[in-house]
Design a protein around this nucleic acid. Sequence first.
DNA 1: TATTGTTATACTCTATAACTATA
DNA 2: TATAGTTATAGAGTATAACAATA
Lengths: 129, 129
Amino acid sequence: MQGFERFSSDFVRQYGLTHAQFDIIATLGNTCGMPYKELGQKTLITKGTLTGVIERLEQKGLVRRERCPHDKRSYSVRLSVEGEQVFHDVFPKLTRQGQQLFEGYTEDDFVRLENSLAGLKQAIANGHS
Amino acid sequence: MQGFERFSSDFVRQYGLTHAQFDIIATLGNTCGMPYKELGQKTLITKGTLTGVIERLEQKGLVRRERCPHDKRSYSVRLSVEGEQVFHDVFPKLTRQGQQLFEGYTEDDFVRLENSLAGLKQAIANGHS
DNA sequence: TATTGTTATACTCTATAACTATA
DNA sequence: TATAGTTATAGAGTATAACAATA
């Protein structure tokens, strides 16, 4: 875990993004936007912190905010065109970078790993709730 | 990964420790101390940051510093008696907490998971260097 | 001259609580 | 009254670079 954490966060930082910012972009990718509340629930970032993180992403032009027509207290946050570019640019690279890790893996290795991790993930999610 | 990260960091925070501080204690556990430089290499914390982290751990009385007799520029950082208590108190609990995640696992499940993860770990370490 | 650790700077994240504006 | 987001506050980690003491 620590190994991959370092591996990926070095990579992300090269794009001038922090872990939290990357988390937001990842969460917003392939969606049509969502309010702060939902974003906070998905990323586990509290609302006070979220204001700052979104602000910095907005300054970088990666994210846009629109007042929600139905509830004027709320915003809809979504990726800008540039934000989507980053999303579609960084993720495949990160994935590809990740792929190099698995050079020696056979199809069978993948299946075994995937099954193991799926079980582990579920166990963590259950123990966690 | 994210699931376990949250799981364990919630737990660690209950002891009033941050991730970085926990990392130091974990690294210092079962050793007779080491200088800042080595500590920084093992935890990937840069020296400037390390000064602050160690300082806070020293204020909490979990860590002690002694000038190295051989090289007067250098300190030897080691766990205090209380620091060792924390180490021996928190780690088994974290492990036990972790064990609950694996309630439904059979011996075979463990073997499979262990093999998969060992391979993954090595792949990450290699891709990482 | 090179290295160990310190200090200074500037930024980001973090939690928490008081606040505003809507609902 | 309750909720969505803001602001204020205080603390912690991060990188970087200039610095002092020692090697």
